[in-house]
């Protein structure tokens, strides 16, 4: 049987006042597994991510991280969990997720010192982390504003890895990068996965996740409408919305084929209360 999942989300609901943003989501992630969560504007994908890391309070349902039930945790419980560094979160915009007044070194030291590591061991670990994300030590004294976009995202990734998390939530982690940095980041996520870290890779673009995810979950209007191994979901999609997503993702080889089919799917989703 499969090992105990690092993350288990069961029948999760989130309400923002009267808006029912997440309508009963289920998701499990095993150690060393990468699960892609695909959703467009308003699908609830960021709500799901934020609920998993405790930034949004669910209105119902369960979230278990490494065996611990977290959906009912209050501030103090979450702070204790974060201190252990079991789960980490990488956002799309690295400039806004790094403290602009902290140098690279200070940013990377912070989670380690909070965890209670001695300063010397922490400094040692910072150098290891830099090497892992292939950043030069010369950058340690720089502020986030003095780095390129690619370097900045590597610093956020290094910071997320500082505490050796078992689960990393990646929310559109490569969308703001150029091609060379995107490829480098994706390669790195694969290494991370191979080293046993569980990843939830959230994106609006199935195309950017298909190559790295073992499984794919498709979110549409607050519900996971389809979930399965990547190859199955991509090649034999069952839900009309998944078919439209795949037919819409720009690819190099199938580019000119699906215009008429896309039109049919849009019509189908419109008449079934799909997106306008």
């Amino acid at each position: 049987m499969s090992p105990e999942p690092v993350l288990a989300v069961t029948d999760l609901h989130v309400h923002y006042r009267r808006v029912h943003a997440l309508r009963g989501a289920d998701l499990t992630v095993a150690p060393g597994e990468t699960v892609g969560v695909i959703g467009e504007t308003g699908s609830g994908k960021s709500t799901l991510a934020r609920a998993i890391v405790g930034l949004v309070r669910p209105s119902a349902g369960r979230i278990t991280i490494a065996g611990q039930e977290v959906a009912g945790l209050r501030g103090g419980g979450w702070r204790a969990l974060r201190r252990r560094g079991v789960v980490q979160y990488v956002f799309q915009d690295p400039l806004r997720s790094l403290d602009p007044d902290l140098t690279v070194e200070e940013s990377l030291l912070e989670p380690l010192l909070i965890q209670g590591r001695p300063r010397r061991a922490a400094a040692e670990r910072v150098r290891e982390l830099l090497e892992r994300v292939r950043l030069d030590e010369d950058l340690l004294g720089r502020l986030p504003g003095e780095l390129s976009g690619g370097q900045r995202q590597r610093v956020t990734i290094a910071r997320a890895l500082a505490t050796e998390p078992r689960l990393v939530i990646l929310d559109e982690p490569v969308s703001a990068l150029d091609a060379a940095n995107r490829v480098r980041a994706l390669e790195f996520f694969q290494e991370l996965r191979d080293a046993g870290t569980a990843l939830v890779f959230i994106s609006h673009d199935l195309g950017s996740v298909a190559g790295v995810a073992d499984r794919i979950a498709v979110l549409f209007q607050g519900e996971i409408v389809e979930e399965g191994p990547t190859r199955e979901v991509v090649n034999a999609p069952r839900h009309a919305y998944t078919r439209l997503l795949i037919g819409s993702a720009p690819t190099l080889r199938s580019a000119r084929v699906a215009r008429a089919e896309r039109e049919e799917l849009r019509e189908l989703l419109r008449t079934n209360g799909g997106p306008a």
């Binding site: 091609a179 060379a180 995107r182 490829v183 994706l186 199935l206 195309g207 950017s208 298909a210 190559g211 790295v212 990547t230 190859r231 991509v234 090649n235 034999a236 795949i246 993702a249 690819t251 190099l252 080889r253 199938s254 084929v257 699906a258």
Partner: peptide
């Protein structure tokens, strides 16, 4: 590099061609 990104990490990697045709 631009092509490799699609071929290695994109949909092109998992898309089986007979499905497309």
């Amino acid at each position: 590099l631009l092509i490799a990104e699609h071929a290695r990490y994109g949909l092109d990697r998992v898309l089986e061609l007979e499905h497309v045709a």
